[in-house]
Write a protein that binds this DNA or RNA. Structure first.
Lengths: 347, 347
DNA sequence: GCTCGCACTTGGATCGATCAAGGGGGCACG
DNA sequence: CGTGCCCCCTTGATCGATCCAAGTGCGAGC
């Protein structure tokens, strides 16, 4: 049998069998084999069985390039894989991408990654689109002022966004998103149920619509429960030490017994302040984060955190993409999914 | 209904222009346009300029499927995107994938993700290979007993592994890896330089070759510096509470002043034990983790951690893949890269 | 006997780029 | 003035699957 030579890389791939090979071997025409693969119900059962067996024997699999050329599809979904932000806990992307890969596979698609370039944000999209390398895109960063979604709409390229179009009164593109306000509502209600009344908010700066949405969930829940929020909110950068500072100030000035944070990163900051002040998370002060990042899971005092249903997001995105690509009507512009709360020791 | 504003000039035509369109418009043949794209030096400068201008005017980009069919390549690199392991700090995959996407792009490749299936570990590879959907693979999980690398070798599929073939038997394959022992050596020496002499090791069970490699770095460095290691090592599961328990036992029995861990997850366990015992990381006891995960970066007391040069790994992998795919000789079977130490407050 | 429809076959064209030959014009050289 | 040659470009074939239209054999139904 094949003994591998001692020099690396001296192996050559073999040419796989073609449709014609299968046809000849099975004693049928090319067309019939093609039908066996794509329209099995057109064949008589016994013929189908015979062809299928031959396909199995030869290990035939339709050549992707040829099929793509003819059908003008690639069965690929493009996803811009943006640089990871070091120093923050936001590892949601990883989980989302994985879910997307799984969901796509089930729909007969694969995920193609391409790099992001902040100087030319649509360059990668443009290339792939014009060379018909992908059938559709999934857009993940739809924050305010991001030109990608608008650009893709204009190009009439099929895509679904993970994230709402915050800046527009009228939805210009199809989206799937997680209800951030519902997440912080869950978190806040959870704390209220545990007897907390002075629950503080540490969130992002005002120019982040996502941050404001999450904040609104906290705010409304507090008010719905007749609780005051004066002096209990703070808006900072999404870095650990900002969270720590904000927590320190809030503790000094407003004596909260619990914190709801817009991110696990900020929650980590709170944990730090608690640690410095010899306060035990979960016993003395409750803390809830957002994103259920690995930090929340691995931190010795498990951090209670809002968990986005990324698996469902992926499934919903792929489902919608499929409708788009088969030119079926899409019912709604957007789908909003409910997050859950991963409860741990910190609350 | 959706009102999508359209700027007619910049809108993507229903069908993108083809080579023939460009050729006709520029008054040359298809082949000449093809050469303008792929072998510019075959054209006279003025012709080249003219063709290039026409390409720009029409916004032409070669159709991927057609090119793939003819050249029998796809310019795609397959990567199995395995499920994220919840509850551990190992987010190295994310950073690696991103680096790989960037490095691939520069070499004219894209990364195609496909899901992993533990029941049929080579199924995904097989499909993509037989349908000639990808040119090559990057294999990431080459732990002992993993059949993928061996299977791919046998199929003569071009691939490069991130990870050494630990079982050291034929058939061998081409790999790029990070020197784990060098990483723990860095960590250990760093601690010795800070005056520590009783440095403990918390690592994985013996059946993990990677774990044993990392352990060896600690062991050798200790011995090289004339330090004893008796009673200072422990091997456990890679989960937080195991790390915590191991730390507690070691502290009680051997009074170490520093810990080197095989992972950030275990280091988190150590941190937990320190916290319970009111010991300050970095001041009372030093801790070093492995992987420089987001946990290490975000943890309030920054965790010193061995950082794998994943960017370099990706570049090296792509470089080698390119040699393989162009049938150029590959010099060596494997390349071992040196990690660095991200020093933070915990040491 | 005739029609109808099913289950294929047949031959060709097609998708769009690239490969492998095949010109043709200009220039140098005899 | 003819020949050879190189450079630059053109032409037809090709990659492998799918689309298309027309045709064949056969059994059932009227």
């Amino acid at each position: 049998m094949a003994r591998i030579e001692s020099r690396p890389g001296s192996q050559l791939p073999v040419t796989p069998p073609t449709l014609a090979d299968v046809a000849e071997r099975a004693g049928v025409s090319r067309q019939t084999v093609s039908n066996a693969v794509n329209n099995p119900d057109l064949l008589r059962p016994d013929t189908l069985e015979r062809v299928r067996q031959t396909i199995a024997e030869l290990g035939y699999s339709p050549n992707r390039a040829a099929r793509n050329l003819r059908t003008r599809t690639s069965q690929l979904i493009g996803l811009r894989f943006a640089p990871v932000q070091e120093g923050t806990a936001n590892a949601a992307m990883d989980r989302f991408v994985h879910s997307l890969v799984e969901a796509s596979e089930e729909a007969g698609y694969h995920v193609l990654l391409f790099p992001g370039d902040d100087e030319d944000p649509v360059g990668g999209y443009d290339n792939l689109l014009r060379s018909t390398a992908v059938d559709a895109f999934v857009v993940t960063d739809t924050y305010l002022g991001n030109p990608q979604a608008a650009w893709l709409s204009q190009q009439r390229a099929p895509f679904v966004a993970f994230g709402r179009p915050w800046d527009d009164e009228e939805p210009r593109h199809i989206w799937v998103d997680v209800d951030g306000a519902a997440g912080t509502r869950l978190a806040t209600q959870h704390l209220i149920d545990r007897g907390h009344t002075r629950i503080a908010w540490i969130g992002w700066r005002k120019d982040s619509p996502i941050g404001e949405d999450r904040r609104a969930g906290w705010l409304r829940t507090m008010h719905d429960n007749g609780l005051s929020t004066t002096g209990l909110a703070s808006r900072v950068e999404d870095v650990v030490h900002s969270g720590a500072e904000a927590a320190a100030v809030l503790l000094d000035e407003s004596r909260p017994t619990a914190f709801v944070c817009a991110s696990d990163t900020l929650a980590m900051g709170v944990m730090h302040t608690l640690w410095i002040r010899q306060l035990a998370p979960g016993r003395d002060i409750a803390v809830v984060g957002f994103d259920d990042s690995q930090v929340a899971q691995v931190y010795p005092v498990g951090l209670t955190s809002v968990r986005q249903p990324l698996e469902d997001v992926a499934v919903e995105i792929v489902r919608t993409l499929r409708l788009l690509l088969t030119h079926q009507p899409v019912e709604t512009w957007g789908v909003l999914l409910e997050p859950t709360l991963a409860i741990r020791e910190s609350s």
